[in-house]
Design a protein around this nucleic acid. Structure first.
Lengths: 112, 112
DNA sequence: TATTCACGATCTATTTATGGAACATATAGA
DNA sequence: TCTATATGTTCCATAAATAGATCGTGAATA
């Protein structure tokens, strides 16, 4: 039996979703695009676009980022040299590290 | 009857999810935290954390942002003065605008 | 080598998100 | 006012995400 969930989220996570939704809505309104048009282009329902703009935690990353792209919001864009560079760096860093960093694992405590 | 989905995503959306996952994984490894520990703290399963780090499009915004917060990743943080300011600005801008901007709606074409 | 631990992947039952329809409200213009 | 359009909301069937278990692999240490 699967636990009935009833999730709770940190303030950060909620704020991040709220802000992403606001940015999307703002970009959409500024461009004069309707929710329906966004939904059609993204291949999702009007209700889902609405929930994404409200910053609800249940919408999928895929739908949210797709909608963000359609309204012209480029948070992690490949057009951004900084982020593209960062992406390469991230991949390299992970490639260099062993899959599990055993030594540090036991040392780290709840210091964040 | 609901359409069987079979979604496709834009390159931007896929890259954004991939980068977010990489950033999460990198932050986690740097801090020497295990996937299991992240999962426990976020209240999600180990498999879901794994999928989030892989940048799969199906994971929820809530779970992804929660995991990001736990590994210390602050993309849209309230600690970030810029983003906090932006958040306020977004809310004000939307408050000023009417719910639907009829005039511009009909003018805008697929010019982006 | 044997052991331990973390990661990665797959499968199934169940929870959950989503689509689609319906209805209400608001805005702008005829 | 009447009409048309956009947004916001609710409900329900179902498609999809998730939890949990299981198994395998690799890496580090004894």
């Amino acid at each position: 039996m699967v636990k009935p969930a009833n999730r709770s989220y940190s303030r950060y996570a909620r704020e991040a979703a709220t802000l992403l939704g606001l940015m999307i809505r703002n970009a959409r309104v500024e461009r004069g695009i309707t929710v329906s048009e966004i939904a059609e282009r993204a291949g999702v329902s009007r209700g889902l676009v609405h929930r994404i703009e409200r910053g609800e935690m249940t919408s999928s990353i895929g739908a949210s980022f797709e909608v963000a792209a359609i309204v012209g919001l480029h948070l992690f864009d490949s057009e951004s040299p900084t982020l593209t560079h960062y992406l390469r760096m991230e991949q390299q860093k992970l490639a260099l590290l062993p899959r599990a960093v055993r030594t540090s694992t036991t040392k780290v405590k709840d210091d964040f």
